[in-house]
Structure formats: C-alpha cells, structure tokens
Design a protein around this nucleic acid. Structure first.
Lengths: 244, 244
DNA sequence: CGTATGCTTGATGGTTATCAATTATGGTGG
DNA sequence: CCACCATAATTGATAACCATCAAGCATACG
C-alpha cells in the first residue's frame, strides 16, 4: 500500500531516435501490417520511440490514458492489483505486440505497465491517432481489430483456466516460444523474462504450483534448464492431447 | 456430433413490425444512448426487428457474420462447443444488450446464438453499418466501445474464476438480478431463463456443483425457490466480503 | 403414459491452495 | 572481492474444494 517504496515510474524515459518504421525489425508484426503506405507514413509521424530500463513503469493505473504502445524490443507486463491484494496479470507483450489497448475506451489506464527487460517501445498519442482515424477508414478499423484480438486472447485464457496447472503452463510456454524465438524450427532456448510469481498471477494459480509444474516438466524431459535459460525440448508431443 | 438432431435453426424467423426506436422499451439501455438524434435516425433505418421462439438458433458458428444484434426482450445464449466436447458459454444477453459483437472482426460467427425465451431482437447489417460508420465518428467509436465492454466482462469472469463455485454463483445471480429486475429495490423474484447446465458451462464448472451451490444458498436463506422462480433475499450481505 | 431432459444426492479421488521453512540468486555497498 | 540483504525459487505436509462416477427423482411434452 506504500506506493512510494515501489515507485519506479521513470520520470524522464530515454527517447530513441526515430529512424522510421522501414528500419524497424518489428514491422512485420506491427500494426502497420494492417495499413497501406499512406497510412503507415501518417502513423509514423505520430509515433514516438521511447526506451525503458528493466523495472520501470510505462504507465500506471489511474493516469489519463493518453497513449497506446507497440513493443519494439524487450518485454512489457501489464497488470493490476485486485481488491483482495492479488496481482492480476492482464498480459505480457513482446516484440511487435500492441499494448495499452485495454484502456483505449477509458479515460484512464486500468492497469500498470512495467518493462521487464530493457525495452524499446513506440508510443501513439490517442488525440493524434483519433484525428488520423477520422479520415482514414483503415485506421478506424484497426482499433476494433486490436481490441478484438485482446478479447480473443482473454477468452482463450478463460477457457484454458479449467486445465490443470501443468497443461496451462505448457500452453503458456508454447505461446511464449512462438513469440520469443525468431523461427519455430530454430533454437528454442530462451530466458524467461518474467518471474514465477508473474506467471502464477497470469495463470491465476499459486507460485508454488508453477514451481512444481516446471520441475515436473524438467523431470519428464519436456524442458531443460541451464542457469536462467529454459529450453523447450518436445512441447508439441505434450500439447497434442489438448485439442488446441 | 449429429447436428441434424439439434438443428433448431429458424428457417424463417418471424419479423416484427418496425415501430421505431422511440417506442422501444430498451432505448435507455440500447446502443442509441451513445448517439445523437441524427445517428439514431440513421441506425433506425438499418435495423430490422425479428422474433425468435424459445430454442431457435439466431446464428450459427461458421456462418458469415453479416449482422450483429440488440436484444429487445427475452434472453439469448451465445456459446460454442470446444474441441474436447465441453460447452463454453460466451455470454447471456438480456433486454438492451448487444450481441454478435464478438464476431464483428471475423468473417464468420465464432459461436452459436440461441433464444432461450421467446425473444425479440434488432438485427443490424454490417455492410450497412459500415457505410454509416464511414461518415459518422460517433458510430465509429461505438463499435470499439462495444467490443471493449465485452473485453471487460470476459476479463471480470477470468478474474472471478479462482473463487469457489458458491461465490461465483452469487456474483452471477447478482448480475442477473440487476439485468432482469427493473429496479433494484423492487421485486427480486424471477425465473432463471437458462438451465443449470448452461450456468455450469458459463462458469466453467460441473452442473452438479451448480446444483449443490444453489441448494446451499437456499439452506442459508440467501435465495428462495418457488417452483421455477428464484428470489434473491439478501445477496448483498453474502457478496460484501468479496471486495467487488 | 412413456421418454427425454433436467435436477438432485452420495461417495470417492485428484488437484491445488495454504502454511511453513529452507535454499538459491542477484544486486549493493563496504 | 566478499558479506549482506532482499527477492525468488524450492520442498514438504495438510486440508479444502471440486470433478467424476453412479444412481434416483422430477418435470415437461408429445
């Protein structure tokens, strides 16, 4: 409850040079894939690149929701603390993901957003975005599509929540692998950017359960761990009975 | 799996006379509350009223999602059958609710929609709606707001899913009371439009658990049952420790 | 009046929350 | 470079909750 202790809000986040979306590695994931050249150019003019170091807050619940964001590199955790003290993780966002959309139709942010890594993001101001959207139907449609994507993701989690912890964790790691490893056939070793506590909050279970499930997967040879890195060995076989 | 047995799709649904939104009892809940007089008139011209009797399908998963809908009276269940055979209930929709929005950004419907009562609805064709939306920023914004509302509801369910069945059921009945009873201070007796199986699918639990929880609430005097009617006696006291 | 569907109840086992305690890890300052 | 601290991860024991299976009852509907 003592906010000042954990107050890591970045008072003056680093600002990266705007090099243009053409040079951005995330362009193939980014919202620009919805848009034609003209719209991309217009979007590019209203995007501001920023850098946050690990642990910094990007926005905070209750602040006016003036922008939404695209992750260029790194990982962002979007969460809030519930009335009963639990942490609810709305989502983890990786390179190419759009976040802050859950608050787009609200005056103020519903969640806190925190950089888990050193993270580069593109900020899009809503006021400028709405000017653009008023004249460009592609841009209009984009925002509905983005909110709709969030809806699908949350609904998927709602449906998966009846599965036992181990299966939920398999699905979580599988999705993470798809996001974090460039190509799926390549190296599947990566370090988990979030803590077991974060994963537990995301899945709605206790951190002890996450720990035990991870251990069990290692014993069964589904994953391997070397220091902080995790490697997915044969997750597909483990997932196949799940009717995904 | 034998679809024809349960094939209750209405081949030729009744069509109610369009009397205009002014005379519609749901106007205070309806999407029209977002819009000014001009936009309401325009919406009114593209809305078609239809009647479905209990058990009829309004749309079906996989069909092209040409319309979305507002409930005038009655109750609509939106659900789909998952890969493992479970029924997942996306939502129940009552007077004034908008449904079909979950499929707005898709080519085809993601779910089946079924009338649980004799139900009157307004259908809004997407093609006509998008023409309207291209020139009217209020209408544009409305669709984002509607999808965003669905997102909030689903997220609420995701968060509540860790609660035990009895608490989830309390919350469910509380929400239902707010929707089904005109004023909250008035009579809180109403008949549940959906089966215990439906409620169980909505909450992601077994129907036996729903039955036991309902019985327990009756024993504790939280609810009373007379034939098919249920009456909420003192749900607020039961809900107060839940930090809602 | 028979059948289908929904509802009810009991017994049992499995999964996870909970509480408690210990070990590892990373970062900080001396 | 090491000692120290805070945080994260681990492990064990126990109890609560719910799924599951099975069987019987109620209700509606033709």
């Amino acid at each position: 409850m003592n906010q000042s202790i954990d107050d890591r809000m970045n008072p003056n986040p680093g600002r990266a040079k705007n090099k243009g979306c053409e040079s951005c590695k995330t362009i193939k994931f980014c919202m620009n894939s919805w848009l034609d050249k003209n719209a991309v150019d217009a979007m590019e003019r209203i995007m501001k690149r920023k850098v946050f170091s690990a642990g910094r807050k990007i926005y905070r619940r209750g602040n006016p929701s003036q922008s939404f964001y695209v992750v260029q590199s790194g990982t962002v955790k979007v969460e809030r603390i519930l009335g009963d003290g639990r942490h609810y993780v709305h989502g983890f966002y990786h390179s190419g993901d759009v976040f802050g959309i859950e608050s787009f139709c609200h005056q103020s942010y519903c969640n806190d957003a925190t950089a888990l890594d050193d993270t580069q993001i593109c900020a899009i101001e809503r006021s400028q975005f709405e000017l653009l959207s008023a004249t460009n139907p592609q841009v209009q449609k984009m925002i509905s599509q983005l909110i709709s994507s969030e809806l699908r993701l949350i609904e998927k989690r709602l449906i998966d929540r009846h599965l036992d912890v181990e299966k939920q964790l398999l699905i979580f790691l599988h999705d993470l692998t798809k996001r974090c490893c460039e190509s799926f056939s390549e190296d599947r070793r990566f370090s988990l950017p979030m803590s077991q506590y974060d994963i537990a909050s995301y899945l709605g279970v206790r951190h002890e359960s996450v720990c035990r499930a991870l251990k069990k997967m290692q014993r069964q040879g589904v994953t391997q761990k070397k220091s902080k890195n995790i490697e997915i060995i044969n997750i597909d076989n483990a997932l196949s009975p799940l009717h995904l």
